[in-house]
Amino acid sequence: MADDNLINEESSKETNKDVITAKINSVKKSIESQIKSLTIKARINKYGAVAVQSCIIVCSVITPILIGWTPKDDMLNNYALICSAVTAGGTMIYNFFSYRDLWVEYKISRNEFITLLAELEYLQSSGPENIDEKKVDALFQKYIQIRNEIGKNYRRIRSDKDIPNPNPKSDTAIDSSTKQSIDPSTKQSN
Rank of each mutant, 00 (worst) to 15 (best):
A49Y: 06
V50R: 03
V52K: 00
S54M: 05
S54H: 03
S54E: 06
I57A: 08
V58A: 09
S60V: 01
V61F: 08
T63E: 13
T63V: 07
P64H: 06
I67C: 08
W69L: 15
P71R: 07
K72I: 14
L76G: 05
N78W: 07
N78M: 10
A80H: 03
I82A: 13
C83Q: 04
C83K: 04
C83N: 13
S84F: 09
V86R: 00
V86N: 01
G89N: 09
G90H: 09
T91P: 01
T91C: 08
M92A: 15
M92K: 12
M92T: 15
I93T: 13
N95P: 10
F96K: 12
D101L: 09
W103C: 14
W103T: 07
K107P: 03
K107A: 10
K107H: 06
I108S: 06
S109R: 03
S109H: 08
N111E: 11
N111M: 07
E112S: 14
F113P: 01
F113V: 01
L116A: 09
E121P: 01
E121A: 00
Y122S: 14
L123E: 04
L123T: 10
L123F: 02
S125P: 04
E129H: 05
D132F: 05
E133Q: 09
K135D: 15
K135G: 03
L139I: 04
L139V: 02
F140G: 02
F140V: 00
Y143T: 02
Y143P: 02
I146C: 01
I146R: 01
R147D: 15
I150E: 15
N153A: 05
Y154H: 08
R156I: 05
R156C: 04
I157V: 01
R158H: 09
D160F: 04
D160K: 08
D160W: 05
K161F: 07
K161G: 07
P166L: 12
K169L: 14
S170C: 08
S170Q: 07
S170F: 07
T172K: 07
A173I: 06
